[in-house]
Amino acid sequence: MYVPIKTAMSPITILALDTSTEFCSVTLYRTYSDTDMPKIVARHLDTGPISSTHILPAVREVLKFSGITLATCQAIAFGCGPGSFTGLRTACGVAQGLAFGANLPVLAINTLMTCAELVRSQEESAKRVLVALDARMDEVYWADFEWDDTIRDWRIVAGPSLNGVQEVPVPDLPFVLAGNAAVAFGERLSAVTYAKNLRIDAMPNSQATAILAARAFTRGEAIHAEKAMPHYVRNKVAQTTAERESTKERG
């Protein structure tokens, strides 16, 4: 584990990556203290399934715009999942490659928590956030988060998990529902009916990844690049030919 060493004026500079959805998202985040407003340079591109061809050019762009080199960073963060199988491997692989090359540690950040962070960045009163993302195959990636004023960070109530649409539990306290599952499934997702607010725009991105990573870095949670791993909650991404044929026969 890497233990951060900071002086009063030493900045935290983090390069954050997320390709867990159809977006290629890269952010350079820099702050001098916990009370400073961070300086953020971000690129968020709708690239579909080809993020791998856009992510390194986006990294070069944010570094050049910021006028710093990769070696100036203290760590590289990436959205580790849940999310697109290929997208998670892309972000992890690029983060590892850059980290090895620059001798930097890595921070693996929960992509569902970034959605909760985006909600709270615009609604400070949001204390409980249920995140639900369309996982295809009539399933949902979900997690339940509660903001803890004592530690000034999120506490995981449940998740991250993968369940059928009608199996996602509803929190027992007033909550905001974040993510695109509300659009994909409507009231088949019970939380749509009971949420006090819907934030379908709160989706994983690198800016929220960077903010969460900065907190994790100050807690000494950075790891060596070789230990970085995507977090898959679905081991199976498609049916076999036999299973598809069996389904047709039953239909």
Rank of each mutant, 00 (worst) to 15 (best):
T150Q: 13
A182C: 09
A213Q: 00
D149F: 13
L212D: 02
R219C: 09
P169E: 09
D134G: 04
N180S: 11
E139I: 06
R155W: 12
P204V: 07
A182R: 08
E117L: 11
I156P: 02
G186K: 08
A178S: 07
Q122I: 11
R128C: 12
Y141I: 02
R136N: 14
P171H: 03
W147H: 03
A184I: 08
F145G: 03
M203K: 09
Q207W: 11
A91K: 02
A91I: 07
D172T: 14
E167M: 13
M137D: 10
A208I: 03
S125E: 15
V176H: 11
K227V: 00
R120V: 12
A135I: 04
N163D: 15
V157H: 14
V119S: 08
L98G: 05
P169K: 10
R120M: 13
A214L: 03
K196F: 14
I211C: 10
C115Q: 06
V170Q: 02
A214S: 06
G93E: 01
L173W: 15
D148I: 11
L104Y: 01
A182N: 09
A132I: 01
E187L: 12
D201R: 04
F217A: 02
F217N: 01
R199F: 02
G179D: 13
F185P: 10
T114R: 01
R128D: 13
E124W: 13
R120H: 10
E187P: 10
L118I: 12
A91P: 01
L98C: 07
V170M: 03
A213N: 00
S121G: 10
T114K: 05
Y141L: 05
V140M: 02
N103Y: 07
N180K: 14
Y141F: 11
A202R: 06
F145M: 03
P160L: 07
V131L: 14
A202Y: 05
Q122R: 10
D149P: 12
D149E: 15
E117K: 06
M203L: 14
A143M: 07
S125M: 13
K227R: 14
G220Q: 08
A95V: 00
D149R: 13
S161I: 10
G159D: 05
A181M: 08
V170N: 02
M113T: 01
I200Q: 10
V131R: 04
A182G: 14
F175P: 05
S206R: 15
W147C: 04
N103H: 09
L189K: 07
A95F: 00
T218V: 14
L162T: 02
A95D: 00
N197E: 15
F100R: 04
A213G: 00
L130S: 01
V131T: 11
S206A: 15
C92A: 10
A91G: 11
A178C: 10
I156V: 15
D153W: 11
M113H: 06
V157D: 06
T193A: 13
V157L: 11
L212E: 03
A202H: 04
I223S: 01
V94S: 02
A210E: 06
G97I: 02
V192L: 06
L198A: 08
W142S: 08
V119K: 04
K127E: 13
T111M: 03
L133W: 01
W147M: 07
A184R: 12
N197W: 12
S206Y: 09
P204H: 05
L104T: 00
L198D: 05
A222W: 00
E139Q: 06
N180D: 14
G179P: 06
W147L: 07
L104F: 00
S161Q: 12
P204D: 08
D148W: 06
A213V: 00
A184Q: 06
